[in-house]
Amino acid sequence: TTVKLGDIKVTFDNPEKAKKYAQKLAKIYQLTVHVHGDTIHVK
């Protein structure tokens, strides 16, 4: 599962960890989390 934020891409083996990371980023940057299959976009 890949978390994308602009040019930053972080890949996790564990989808749950990816989701938590995405939510953490979203909170920090006051953005929202969008899940598209294996990719989680923070924008």
Rank of each mutant, 00 (worst) to 15 (best):
T1Q: 04
T1V: 12
T1I: 13
T2Q: 05
T2S: 06
V3A: 03
K4D: 05
K4T: 09
K4P: 03
L5M: 12
L5Q: 02
L5E: 02
L5G: 02
L5T: 03
L5W: 14
G6N: 06
G6S: 04
G6V: 06
D7F: 15
D7G: 13
I8Y: 15
K9P: 02
K9L: 13
K9I: 14
T11D: 04
T11N: 08
T11P: 04
T11G: 04
T11M: 12
F12R: 00
D13W: 09
D13G: 08
N14R: 05
N14S: 12
N14G: 04
P15Y: 14
P15N: 07
P15K: 09
P15G: 06
P15E: 09
P15D: 05
E16I: 10
E16A: 09
K17L: 13
K17N: 10
K17H: 11
A18F: 03
A18I: 03
A18K: 00
A18G: 02
K19C: 15
K19N: 08
K19Y: 15
K20G: 05
K20S: 08
K20P: 00
K20C: 13
Y21W: 12
Y21P: 01
Y21M: 05
Y21L: 07
A22L: 07
A22P: 01
Q23R: 08
Q23W: 08
K24Y: 15
K24N: 08
K24I: 13
L25S: 00
L25E: 00
L25D: 00
A26Y: 03
K27T: 08
K27E: 13
K27Q: 10
K27Y: 11
K27P: 03
I28K: 13
I28T: 06
I28H: 08
I28M: 13
Y29A: 04
Q30S: 10
Q30W: 09
Q30N: 14
Q30K: 11
Q30D: 14
L31S: 04
T32H: 07
T32I: 11
T32K: 06
V33C: 10
H34N: 07
V35G: 01
V35Y: 11
V35H: 07
H36Q: 13
H36G: 06
G37H: 03
G37F: 06
G37I: 04
D38N: 14
T39F: 09
T39Y: 08
I40H: 02
I40A: 01
I40C: 06
H41Q: 08
V42G: 01
V42P: 00
V42R: 00
V42L: 15
V42I: 11
K43W: 13
K43Q: 12
